[in-house]
């Protein structure tokens, strides 16, 4: 905004004060938002004995990184859950975004017959669903996806809202570009991969980010479908540790023997260190996508 020169200095001062108050208010809001994060990190970096005697604190009274050493030394269960989660999160991020973009492009072409019908075919699934139990029985008894890696990858490939977001963005690309490429004899696949995808970077990045985070944060799939300990996801492992800290001890005993005595397990701090280790990667990914994020999100966010 351009500053008006005819404004009196008094008004400017008032505006300055107002800006200061606003900033102050947001600093407080942000502090409230960050507070639980800080608490988590602080407990994870505290000394176990101090926690047991004095309770949690927002700043570590006695600093210690033992909990993290413990988490990352504990080889079997946690590292395995990391591997599984990273694998299916990355695969679905690429695969799902591709599948969704592939249908979003035809749906954005006004000349294509039946595109409204196809949109409704997708949209209807948000209005009515078979529900948890029929889905569960289908996946386990008929498709036999239980206890396989496929259960993480195949179901829920298409998110209708993401397709509509992609469609809205692609619609904003001038039609002349597509038409001129067609006249030059380019196939639709060539147009899609060579031109549409590069031009849709903001929305593609946004959808990839959301898909990745949805999968990374998924605990439900493991809880419902996985019994094989080698295939459980990180979030579900974390959930089980919340309800049963002994689980850490068990995996400990099953693991290598050169560890600290299992009875001396620093449960309180290790628990929180686990939570930080699970949440961390999701938060680290975010800044890489932020450049595109708000732009991709706000285009056609309300209506596809």
């Amino acid at each position: 905004m351009t500053k008006k020169e005819n404004k009196s200095t008094g008004l400017k001062k008032a505006e300055k004060k107002r800006q200061f108050i606003l900033s102050f208010m947001f600093v407080i809001i942000c502090a409230i938002i960050l507070f639980p994060f800080l608490l988590l990190v602080s407990v994870s970096l505290s000394d176990e004995k101090d926690i047991v005697f004095n309770g949690y604190n927002i700043i570590p009274r006695v600093f210690s990184t033992n909990a993290y050493k413990y988490v990352f030394k504990n080889p079997t269960s946690i590292l395995n859950a990391y591997k599984v989660t990273i694998f299916y999160s990355v695969v679905t991020m690429v695969l799902n975004t591709l599948v969704m973009a592939l249908i979003a492009y035809p749906l954005s072409r006004k000349e294509l017959k039946g595109r409204k019908g196809m949109s409704f075919y997708l949209y209807f699934t948000t209005l009515f669903s078979g529900g948890l139990i029929p889905t569960f029985i289908l996946n386990t008894q008929y498709l036999h996806l239980g206890d396989t890696m496929w259960i993480y990858i195949l179901p829920g490939m298409v998110s209708v809202w993401h397709v509509f977001m992609l469609r809205a963005f692609i619609q904003g690309i001038p039609n002349e570009i597509v038409e001129s490429l067609r006249i030059d004899g380019a196939s639709e696949y060539r147009i899609f991969f060579g031109t549409i995808i590069p031009l849709s970077k903001p929305v593609i990045a946004t959808v990839m980010l959301f898909t990745f985070l949805n999968k990374w944060n998924d605990w439900m799939t493991s809880m419902l479908y996985i019994n094989d300990q080698k295939l459980i996801s990180l979030q579900y492992l974390l959930q089980r540790i919340m309800l049963n800290v002994q689980l850490l001890q068990q995996s400990q005993q099953a693991g290598t023997s050169d560890m600290i005595d299992a009875t001396q397990l620093p449960t309180e701090t290790v628990r929180m260190a686990m939570a930080v280790a699970v949440a961390g990667p999701a938060l680290l990914v975010f800044p890489f996508f932020q450049k595109y994020f708000t732009k991709g999100l706000t285009v056609g966010s309300v209506k596809g």
Binding site: N217, M242, M272, A279, L283, F286
Partner: peptide, 18 residues
């Protein structure tokens, strides 16, 4: 302000527990 959106409810449950 957006960051909490990217945490799973499992992680948030740890914060609530803390």
């Amino acid at each position: 302000m957006i960051t909490p959106h990217f945490l799973s409810w499992v992680v948030v449950s740890y914060m609530v527990f803390a």
